[in-house]
Every structure is written in C-alpha cells, then in structure tokens.
Design a protein around this nucleic acid. Structure first.
Length: 595
RNA sequence: GUCUCCGUAGCUCAGCCGGAUAGAGCACCAGAUUCCUAAUCUGGGGGCCGUGGGUUCGAAUCCCGCCGGGGACACCA
C-alpha cells in the first residue's frame, strides 16, 4: 500500500476522503448534510493528528447514533494508506493518526511552493478592499496607521486565499473640511506674498475660523505664490496682499492643496509599504453625477421619501428642531432609523456621497466589499450595509473591520496626541523611531477591534516578549544554518526518513496548517491570525533548536551523515519559506541575520 | 435612552459560524546553563471563561436579562 501524492493542504485532503467515505456509507443522505463536516487538529495531541466531527454532524440526517456512525467511518478511514489509525472517541468524534511519511512529505510540497505555499486556488468573485481613506488635510498620524496596516494585510490575505482583490483609497475631497483646508492653505499663500495680516486677524475673516495651522501647508502657499503670483489675492489693501473673493481663488487653491496633500499621504504610505490600486475622488464622483444616479435608483425602488426624523432618544441635541429631509428607508434593511440623504437645505449628506461611491463599486462588478474604518465610525456600519443591500438587490456583501485606537507609550508613559500641529505623533515619526517592519508587525499582534498599546520601547527590544523579534529571529536562525551548510540546492527531493523526533514532526504539522490558517483568517477578515500563527511557528522552531543544544543528535548539520543533514536542512528551508510566506502577507520583510 | 464592541490566569492577550481535561507570553517558584547566531533553556503552581437564566447529547463560544468598561448616536465628515 503506497501513500498518495502529498496534497497542497492535508486538512482539505482528509476532509475530502472523509466525505467520500460518508457518501459510500450513507448513499441516501443528501450532499448538504456534509457541509458542516470539519477536520481540525484536536486540542489534545494524544488524540492524534486530526479529529473530525463528521459523525456528530451527519448523524441526524443519517438517522444513526453518532458513536455508531463514527465507528463505521473510522473503519473506512483506517483502510487509507495515509492513515495509520482512526478510532471513534467521545460522543462521536473520529480521531485520526496520520502516517509519519505522509506528514513528512508535506515538506516537499512546501519547498516546491516556496513563499507561495498557502496560496489558495483562484476563487470566483472579486473583492474590493477600501482602507486608509484619510482626509487629505494633513500628514498621516498614528491613528491612521493601524487601519492602513490592517487593510493592506487583509487585502494581501484575501489575495493569498485566492480572491481577486482591488485595493481602494477613497479621497474625501468634497466636504467642509476640505473647504477649511483651502482657507488654511490660502493663508499660507498670503504669507508667502508678504501680507501683514496676523493669523488671528485672518481667522476672523474666514468662515469657520482657521482650522489647520500646521506648517505643512507652508510649501503649498509657496507653490501657489510661485505659480500664480498675486493673481489670487486682493492687492493694494492696508495689509498688502489680502483676502479676495472665493470665486477668484477657491477652486484653484483647493485643487492644488488636495493634490499636494495626497502626494504627501502617498509618500507616507510608501514609507509604510502600503499600496493601493485605485484612488477614487469624492469630488470627481459628485461632479460626474453619481449622487443623482444613486438617488434616482433608490427612488425607483421606492426607498426614498420626504420626512422628519425623531430626535435621538435620551440625548437630544440642544439645537434640535424638526426639519424635513430626504430620507432613505434604511430600516427596511436592518438599520434602526431611516437616514438622511439630503440636508434640510437640499444639499447632499456625506452619507449620500458614500452611497454614490458604493453604487460605483457595485457597477464595477465587485461581489464583496470590505472596509477598514476607525472604531469611531462604528455607528455608520448598519446604514452603509443597508445602502449596499438596497443598491445591489442584496447580492453584494459589505463587511466592515473596525480598527480601535492605538495608544502610543514610551518609557511607560502615554505619548500625548493632539490635533494641534507639532504635538501629535505622525506616521513618519513612528516609522523613523522603530522601523517600518516593527510598526507593521506590531499593528497586527492584536485583533483589529481591540484597543492596543504601542510600546515604543518593547517593539525594538530583542527578547521573547517582542513577537517581531521572535519571529524574525527564527527566520534568521534558519538562514544562518542554510548559509553554514553552503546553501544546498534541490532540498525538495531530499529523503526525509531521518525526521522522527516529536519536535521535528510538530514543526511540520504546524507548517501543514498554514493553508488552513490563510483560508480561515481570510474568511473571518482577521489578518492578526497570521501574526499569531507565525509566533507559534517560531516557537516550534526555537524549541527544536533548543533541544539541539541538549541533544546534539538533533542539530541540523550532522558531520558524517549527509542524508540526515539533508533531511534536516529541508525542514529548516521549509520553515524559512513558511515564515516568509506569512511575513509576505503582513508586508514585513524577513531578515537574513539579526544585527 | 438606543446601537455597537469588550469582560478568559496576578498582567497583556489568543481561542468564539458549539465539541473532548480552556491556551500562550510575561510575572512568580524550583532547577539547568563553556550551546550550529549571544540576545537563555527545562519544569511547576496558578481559572465558578463578569453574572443569572435559556437552547443543546455537549456552551468560553449561540439566545435573553443584569453588572462593569470603551466607542457612536438628526442636518458634520
């Protein structure tokens, strides 16, 4: 009896064998009954390599007692060459022990695939992942950073799982904030021309006051002065160059400023290694009439009406008064209240523009939409899901991943964040302080919706406490061994019988679970699972390494035993490949040595 | 008041579309430590999984109530 060829995913392989066995045992049971069958490593290693709930899940449809069905299934599975033992257990589990040669053969698969190990087969359906989408009103700060990293890693994870992914940045360049930005840039322009107005005097003259006082707008003002001279200003006033009517300068200033801010943001993103495939401008979209199109479509579906909303219960704003607005029937799609599309003055709400944006995505043919938002936008999720459901006739899904606040800590004390320029931590500051890879990895060591402390001291610390270091160190150790062995070629074909130690087999089993982790993490939209997997994998490897300190027969390079050495080097090379595969998803560069 | 996320070891957190005796790191205790890369290693103690009900053969996981914490709550973006 010879083993089957090593499969790309041993869990999927076993699941397929189990379902086949069930079909043979229960020909009258419909296929849907098998959908909930899972194969996973049992918590208790003594129970074997894998366990399946098949008999428990199918028992009802088969009208059989699970323990009895489990026994029959176990007998079938025992007949498989790759299974050395299958036994019914507990209320109806089947525990499975795999042939060690079958497990070892996974190394050949890993080495043949290299860093692409874990790559899922192409799946139907295109996914749009929107992330960052910071307002183009200034440099990126740490608050944006987590969403950027989570979004980027999630997009990579979905691609790894086999999805076709589009990475999108939505530029909020149409609202009041951008208007305030233009006025702030205009102030720097007047300064560049030599106005004698003071900052406070200027702030008095403009609507809403001077909101953006950071000096990052100085270059914008200078650029405007350089290209337009004093043509955008009122000349000959008591202050020299002064405030002119908006129609003379506003469109020009706004456009230049947004473009320069986006250049700055793109530079920040590049420093973080974050990529987007497409940038969508809110202003451009409105100009194209997308808002009207979206409203017309919803109107045609009978989902729009004029009405007055109740004040929010328990907390009525001081200036609340009943106003008639154009409303969207979000309640028909699971939201608590209907939501305003147009303000009482008839202009579109931000929500309306966002609906238009989503109509655009649906029209571009995506089957699933994913957003990464700050947790402060949590209250916005239901209405957006309602809108997407309405616009797509419930065909397109919208998942929102909420990224919680990051508290930066240094020397045990919180680093203060303030919107006033100069006192807040920019993304650049953070990258300069600890490096891009430490930032990215650390941002993924916690579930996105859990608050996180970013300890500037810890992330550069070289110790077990620091997962960035721990994982990188494992990779560096692998590389060090392979260098010492003279970078052997063709390890995928190495005979592997020498790998028999429990620690060696545990390492292989861990790596064999990587495709499964990719699939599950992608389905759950949880890129942090990759960081935890790598931490566990590094732990398995360090454990084996440390055993080699005690027991020299477990060291990787064995003088006088070329075949055993090649088997171990295959194990080491596979470990390095899987770590690189995982770091690739996280966007972290593996290191060759610790320096 | 409504919605939402959270509550797991002393600390920081995994596990959650139900599955067998609930995990990791740190901290603590006890040992080891002239090692392919040093930035340690091995072992141990430690838990009414916030709480009270419910569903189920089976609940940290699903449902409802309560307690405690974060966030969001017409027209802003």
């Amino acid at each position: 009896m010879s083993l089957p060829p090593a499969p790309a995913d041993i869990f999927a392989h076993l699941r397929a064998r189990i379902v086949e066995a069930l079909r043979a045992l229960l020909p009258e049971v419909p296929e849907e009954a098998f959908a909930r069958v899972t194969v996973e490593p049992p918590r208790e290693a003594a129970h074997g390599d894998m366990a399946t709930n098949a008999a428990l899940v199918v028992g009802k449809a088969a009208k059989q007692a699970p323990p009895k069905l489990a026994a029959a299934l176990a007998e079938k599975l025992t007949a498989l060459p790759e299974v050395t033992e299958a036994s019914p257990a507990g209320p109806g589990f089947v525990n499975i022990r795999l042939d060690e040669g079958f497990i070892r053969a996974q190394l050949g698969v890993i080495l043949a695939a290299g860093e692409t190990y874990g790559q899922g087969a192409p799946r139907p359906g295109r996914i749009n992942v929107e992330y960052v989408s910071a307002n183009p009103t200034g440099p990126m700060h740490v608050g944006h950073c987590r969403g950027a990293v989570v979004g980027d890693a999630l997009a990579a994870l979905l691609a790894k799982a086999g999805h076709e992914v589009c990475r999108e940045y939505y530029i909020n360049d149409a609202g009041a904030q951008v208007q305030a930005l233009a006025y702030a840039a205009y102030w720097r322009y007047l300064q560049a021309l030599g106005t004698t107005l003071t900052e406070d005097e200027y702030a008095q003259l403009i609507p809403g006051g001077l909101q953006y006082r950071g000096d990052y707008l100085v270059p914008v003002g200078e650029a405007l002065a350089r290209h337009h001279g004093d043509a955008l200003a009122e000349t000959g006033t008591a202050h020299g160059p002064g405030l002119a009517g908006p129609d003379r300068w506003f469109a020009t200033v706004r456009e230049t400023t947004v473009a320069m801010m986006m250049d700055m943001i793109r530079d920040d993103l590049a420093a973080l290694g974050v990529q987007h495939d497409i940038f969508i401008s809110e202003a451009a979209m409105v100009a194209e009439g997308k808002l009207d199109a979206a409203e017309a479509q919803l109107n045609a579906q009978g989902l729009i009406y004029r009405g007055v909303l109740e004040p929010p219960k328990g907390k009525t704003p001081d200036d609340w008064e009943p106003r008639e607005q154009t409303l969207f029937r979000a309640t028909q799609f699971g939201d608590e209240v209907d939501r305003a599309l147009r303000k009482s003055d008839g202009s579109g709400t931000y929500f309306a523009n966002d609906i238009a944006n989503h109509l655009g995505k649906i029209e571009r043919g995506f089957d699933a939409l994913v957003h990464v938002w700050g947790a402060d936008h949590g209250g916005y999720v239901k209405r957006m899901q309602a809108a997407v459901a309405a616009l797509s006739d419930r065909r397109v899904s919208l998942d929102v991943v909420l990224a919680q606040i990051v508290h930066v800590v240094k020397d045990g004390a919180p680093v203060r964040m303030s919107k006033r320029a100069g006192t807040y931590v920019t993304l650049r500051d953070l990258i300069d302080e600890v490096g891009r890879d430490a930032v990215r990895f650390t941002m993924l060591t916690r579930k996105a919706d859990a608050q996180m402390e970013f300890d500037l001291d810890l992330v550069v610390q070289q110790s077990r406490d620091n997962p960035v270091f721990y994982v990188q160190y494992a990779h560096a150790r692998c590389r060090s061994v392979l260098r010492a062995a003279g970078e052997p070629a063709d390890l995928a074909a190495a005979p592997l019988d020498a790998l028999t130690d429990p620690a060696e087999l545990a390492l292989i089993r861990r790596m064999a679970g990587w495709p499964r982790v990719v699939e599950a993490a992608a389905a759950a939209r949880e890129p942090h699972r990759v960081a935890f997997f790598l931490n566990d994998l590094a732990g398995d490897f360090h454990l084996l390494w440390n055993k080699g300190r005690e027991d020299s027969s477990l060291r990787f390079i064995q003088e006088g035993d070329p075949e055993g050495t090649r088997a171990r080097l295959a194990l080491v090379a596979a470990t390095a490949a899987v770590i690189r595969s995982g770091l690739g998803v996280m966007g972290v560069a593996p290191v060759e040595e610790m320096r």
